[in-house]
């Protein structure tokens, strides 16, 4: 049996690399990780829809309430206002012209539209109920209520994030980090994309 002499592990004596001195901003990483998990959950819901559609002959297509299209428009619009807000916030913090009032204004507008969206979703529920379509009426209804509810809960989470951004921007010296602002807006845009996807799922007879 050959006995090789153990070589000491090679050590590079170059200065440590890889991680820089900048303060870490995990919010930006964390939000992508979180979005991956949310996307995975909705992928699971989607596969459940596909399997469920094939498993029974009780799938009845429902006509989606009109108000959903209005809600969709509002949510897309809110993504645009949030992008403007993000620019204004950055400009204000760097002292490049935008005022706090402008930044706050766009943020509040986004927040308001988010609230209108959630209220609109609720209105859609009321409309379905008035047509006698409840959670357990048929599988399509079940998925409609479930997906819109789960999405709305996530939107409410996004609204909480926006509220936090506004609170952090409010003091004389803002304590808002760029990564927090960015993370919040990524999340918000994702909610918009997710909603459009869900709308296609319930509307386009997937």
């Amino acid at each position: 049996m050959a006995t090789t002499v153990h070589e000491p592990p090679k050590i590079e004596q170059k200065p440590p690399t890889g991680v820089t001195d900048r303060p870490p901003e995990p919010a930006r990483t964390g939000i992508w990780v979180g979005l991956a998990a949310i996307a995975m959950s909705f992928a699971a819901f989607t596969s459940a829809i596909i399997v469920r559609q094939g498993s029974g002959n009780d799938w009845q297509h429902i006509v989606v309430p009109r108000i959903l299209f209005f809600n969709t428009a509002i949510l897309i619009l809110s993504s645009l206002t949030l992008e403007v807000a993000r620019k204004k916030v950055a400009s204000f913090i760097r002292g490049q012209g935008a005022t706090r009032a402008q930044a706050m204004g766009w943020l509040t507008a986004t927040l308001g539209m988010g609230l209108v969206f959630v209220a609109g979703q609720y209105a859609a529920w009321l409309q379905l109920r008035s047509e006698g379509l409840y959670l357990a009426t048929n599988p399509n209804c079940s998925f409609f209520y479930l997906l819109t509810a789960v999405h709305a809960i996530h939107v409410l989470g996004g609204l909480g994030g926006l509220a936090r951004v506004i609170r952090r921007l409010a003091p004389a010296v803002p304590i808002l980090r760029k990564s927090t602002m960015d993370a919040t807006s990524y999340y918000w845009h994702f909610m918009g994309i997710l909603w459009v996807y869900l709308l296609c799922v319930v509307w386009l007879k997937l």
Binding site: P15, P16, T17, G18, V19, D21, P24, E25, P26, T29
Partner: peptide, 8 residues
């Protein structure tokens, strides 16, 4: 995100 300097 939080690895120390040199912790590749």
């Amino acid at each position: 995100d939080l690895r120390a300097k040199g912790m590749t």
